[in-house]
Write a protein that binds this DNA or RNA. Sequence first.
DNA 1: TTGCCTGTTTCTGGATCCATTATGGAGGAG
DNA 2: CTCCTCCATAATGGATCCAGAAACAGGCAA
Lengths: 225, 225
Amino acid sequence: MTTEVQLAMSEQVAAHLRAQILSGTMPPGGRIRQEVVAEQFGTSRLPVREALRMLSAEGLVELEPNKGARVPMLDEHEVSLVYSMRERLEPLALVESIPHLDDDIVEELRIIQSRIEADTELQEFLILDREFHMLTYSGCDSEHLLGTVRRFWNTTQHYRRAFMEVSGPRRMWIVNAEHNLIIDAIERRDPDDAERYLAGHIRRTRIELLRHPEMFGPASTGASR
Amino acid sequence: MTTEVQLAMSEQVAAHLRAQILSGTMPPGGRIRQEVVAEQFGTSRLPVREALRMLSAEGLVELEPNKGARVPMLDEHEVSLVYSMRERLEPLALVESIPHLDDDIVEELRIIQSRIEADTELQEFLILDREFHMLTYSGCDSEHLLGTVRRFWNTTQHYRRAFMEVSGPRRMWIVNAEHNLIIDAIERRDPDDAERYLAGHIRRTRIELLRHPEMFGPASTGASR
DNA sequence: TTGCCTGTTTCTGGATCCATTATGGAGGAG
DNA sequence: CTCCTCCATAATGGATCCAGAAACAGGCAA
């Protein structure tokens, strides 16, 4: 009796598309054809439709009636605003989370952070950075709060990558310094400091991001039409 | 040439279910059977499934694989947390919105407010109160921000009603006073004051709400199992 | 040449049928 | 009498087929 859960087909499709979108294989503006995805998985179009609904709930695709699905493309103001939302919500998530974070988590955070500092590969950085922040929020037991935070990360994922591409390793040094401040505050169980550092971290990222308007050109990577 | 849009069937079903849930006809914890809804609308189960996916994206139902849909039931802490999220996000929405609100909107706000003060019917109050706040955010052109705010209102809708039921008309007087402060701040185009009043409005509501833990009993209205 | 109209094609939306999984009750063992 | 097991039932998940809307290409007229 394996505890293997035999995921529903629609979940599998959703997971795969999610990975593709988050990894940048499907750039913003790119259309997603149900039939193409369906035969890619050897299923009918129905689970694909369900998967697309799930992803639209997560902010990863947008659905237009009778016109299909596409990866959302955000303009400069919208990205900035999502960062403003993150700036307000994620500190709350962190404050809620800290009381439930034990020393094992803190240790794990330091391990992730050391891997971030060791490995400067872009794709790897994006994954680890996300993992780092999500782990700091993991003590927060509200699915609403966590889900909302995840959605924000999803919608801005592509622009995080574009930003890191143009701002280079210098940006990573700053991120590293700020991450370590956050870890220390968590270890001291100091929610006020943690909140302050995190809000500042996100705010500075947003401001820095706005200094690179070239990221928001018509279509940064293919994705015509 | 009518601009009538011939809504998709799934949208119609979603709209109807949405209204039913928000009006309290379907209480938290209540299961939603696809087949029942389907024959209620004379359609197949497929558009119902799509509608349920939409509603789950809006936070109005929760889906569990192979177990169907139910109206989410929140505990005390979760509701409080959603109010904390509202307290942080809605002031941002208001600040973003104010520059785009013209005098016509202000006038409309005063009309809604006068209707709230005139009509003390509970159901009507809930609708008008929501309409009021959403109108103050209507100048904000970000679908992400507006969508998130709407989701928060959706998830707490049932507890807003339960709260008004137990706290009575006294609560309405306070709400009225605070609404008028917000209108004035908007009319003066003073985002700082507006933000302050709104944050205080939500915070005080949250605190007051927590003084009635009896609302979070096993099941306030039917909805067994 | 340019703009509009129309026919064709392609893709999404919906209906029906089948497979799979959860649920609830009856019956038997301890 | 209680608890476990097994089975019948009902509800969800998926496949296939069909209808309708949108994009595209070609032709016609100004």
